[in-house]
């Protein structure tokens, strides 16, 4: 069991690293799906059978589809150049956080159950934690509203505006104000960061 877990963990982490390193977004999404699949297997081997299946279908399946869909809409753009935070600093910060947490959690591994105890998800979900589920319904609903709000096309005649580049966009904004302001203030407006 330990060896299997070790392999799964290494595979999942490697997939995660690859997802970040990948040049193309599509690859990144696929590596994420891979990581998700390995994590689902870890779940299964730890006894969390039901959520393993959920994770496999939602995490590795649905989410990947969503990513692919979004990438196809937004375009698979390759971004050149250095990241904002120097890589060395990023490695250091992330590494220190990991070390700190490991150091704190090092003793927490003591209780070792003899056998993985699978227990019913349904009881926990629908009876013991029903309040969570109710709150979750509100969450999902607001999520749907949010999605609709973010993606819905404008009803009015602004449709032409939606495909402008940022520079044109800000010019339009200025133009909208031009009717109301003096040229002097307009120059200031344009100079604003």
């Amino acid at each position: 069991m330990v060896e299997l877990l070790l392999i799964l963990v290494i595979a999942a982490v490697a997939c995660a690293i690859q997802a970040i390193r990948a040049e193309r977004l599509l690859n990144s999404a696929l590596w994420l799906a891979g990581a998700s699949a390995f994590i689902a297997m870890i779940f299964y081997s730890m006894g969390a059978r039901e959520v393993a299946i959920i994770e496999l279908s939602v995490g590795a399946g649905l989410v990947t589809v969503l990513f692919v869909f979004a990438i196809s809409v937004a375009g698979d753009e390759s971004i050149e150049g250095r990241p904002a935070v120097p890589r060395a600093l990023a490695v250091m910060l992330a590494g220190l956080c990991v070390i700190g947490l490991i150091w704190l959690l090092r003793d927490l591994t003591a209780p070792t159950p003899t056998a993985a105890s699978a227990s019913a998800l349904t009881n926990a979900l629908w009876h013991e934690r029903a309040l969570d589920v109710l709150a979750q319904v509100a969450l999902i609903f607001t999520g749907v509203i949010g999605l609709l709000g973010l993606l819905a096309e404008p009803r009015s005649a602004h449709a032409a505006e939606t495909h402008t580049t940022p520079v044109e966009g800000s010019q339009q904004k200025i133009a909208a104000r031009a009717t109301t302001e003096s040229p002097l203030e307009l120059q200031k407006e344009a100079a604003r960061p």
């Binding site: 730890m46 959520v51 994770e55 989410v63 979900l125 969450l139 973010l150």
Partner: peptide, 24 residues
């Protein structure tokens, strides 16, 4: 594990919702 599973299920769902909004 039952309790843990129920929470993981919640996290999966909530997180998917967040991902959807983020992608939008």
């Amino acid at each position: 594990m039952g309790l843990a599973q129920s929470m993981v299920a919640m996290v999966i769902v909530a997180d998917t919702v967040v991902a959807v909004i983020a992608l939008a």
